[in-house]
Amino acid sequence: MLEVIGWLGTVLVVASLTVAGVWRFRVMNLVGAVLATAYNAAIGVWPVVAMNGAIALIDVYWLVRLQRERHDAAAYEVLDVDADDAWLGHLLRVHGDDVRRFHPGVDLAPAPGRSAHLVVRGDETVGVVLVRDVGGGTGLIEVDYVTPRFRDFTPGEFVYRRSGLFVERGLRRLEVHAVPHAGTTYLERMGFRPTGTGGWERPVEPVAA
Rank of each mutant, 00 (worst) to 15 (best):
residue 80 D to M: 13
residue 137 G to Y: 02
residue 70 R to H: 11
residue 157 E to N: 11
residue 78 V to S: 08
residue 91 L to M: 12
residue 131 V to A: 04
residue 191 G to K: 09
residue 102 F to Y: 14
residue 28 M to T: 08
residue 46 W to G: 00
residue 143 V to I: 08
residue 40 N to M: 08
residue 135 G to F: 02
residue 13 V to S: 00
residue 169 R to W: 02
residue 204 V to A: 07
residue 32 G to K: 05
residue 123 D to Y: 09
residue 77 E to Q: 15
residue 105 G to F: 00
residue 47 P to A: 06
residue 90 H to Q: 13
residue 79 L to P: 09
residue 140 L to F: 08
residue 196 G to V: 12
residue 22 V to M: 12
residue 44 G to I: 00
residue 154 T to C: 01
residue 175 E to F: 11
residue 130 L to N: 06
residue 61 Y to A: 14
residue 7 W to C: 04
residue 170 G to T: 00
residue 107 D to L: 03
residue 146 V to Q: 03
residue 165 L to R: 07
residue 187 L to S: 09
residue 126 V to D: 06
residue 3 E to S: 14
residue 15 A to F: 08
residue 119 V to N: 01
residue 59 D to K: 09
residue 116 A to Q: 04
residue 65 R to D: 12
residue 139 G to V: 02
residue 205 E to D: 15
residue 124 E to D: 15
residue 83 A to K: 08
residue 152 D to E: 14
residue 36 A to L: 15
residue 142 E to L: 08
residue 132 R to T: 14
residue 71 H to E: 15
residue 87 W to S: 13
residue 153 F to Y: 13
residue 32 G to N: 01
residue 101 R to S: 07
residue 106 V to Q: 00
residue 130 L to Y: 05
residue 53 G to E: 03
residue 128 V to Y: 00
residue 155 P to E: 04
residue 75 A to Q: 05
residue 171 L to E: 07
residue 203 P to L: 12
residue 6 G to K: 10
residue 49 V to A: 02
residue 120 V to L: 07
residue 18 T to G: 10
residue 186 Y to I: 11
residue 106 V to A: 00
residue 66 L to G: 07
residue 182 A to S: 12
residue 39 Y to H: 05
residue 45 V to C: 02
residue 121 R to W: 06
residue 59 D to L: 02
residue 81 V to D: 02
residue 184 T to L: 10
residue 22 V to P: 03
residue 81 V to L: 01
residue 132 R to M: 10
residue 49 V to G: 06
residue 183 G to A: 03
residue 146 V to H: 04
residue 48 V to L: 04
residue 52 N to C: 01
residue 92 L to H: 11
residue 30 L to V: 03
residue 25 F to K: 08
residue 67 Q to C: 11
residue 34 V to E: 09
residue 171 L to W: 08
residue 149 R to T: 06
residue 172 R to I: 00
residue 131 V to E: 05
residue 49 V to M: 02
residue 10 T to R: 11
residue 12 L to Q: 05
residue 95 H to G: 05
residue 34 V to G: 11
residue 180 P to E: 10
residue 49 V to T: 06
residue 57 L to K: 07
residue 65 R to M: 12
residue 164 G to V: 08
residue 126 V to N: 02
residue 61 Y to H: 13
residue 43 I to T: 03
residue 23 W to Y: 15
residue 153 F to L: 13
residue 51 M to F: 15
residue 109 A to T: 12
residue 192 F to P: 07
residue 40 N to F: 11
residue 99 V to D: 00
residue 164 G to S: 14
residue 102 F to L: 01
residue 202 R to H: 03
residue 5 I to H: 03
residue 6 G to W: 10
residue 173 R to Y: 03
residue 32 G to E: 06
residue 102 F to C: 11
residue 102 F to E: 13
residue 60 V to G: 01
residue 187 L to M: 10
residue 156 G to P: 06
residue 206 P to Y: 07
residue 65 R to T: 13
residue 163 S to V: 09
residue 201 E to P: 02
residue 141 I to K: 07
residue 95 H to W: 05
residue 146 V to W: 00
residue 84 D to A: 08
residue 10 T to H: 12
residue 85 D to A: 04
residue 138 T to M: 02
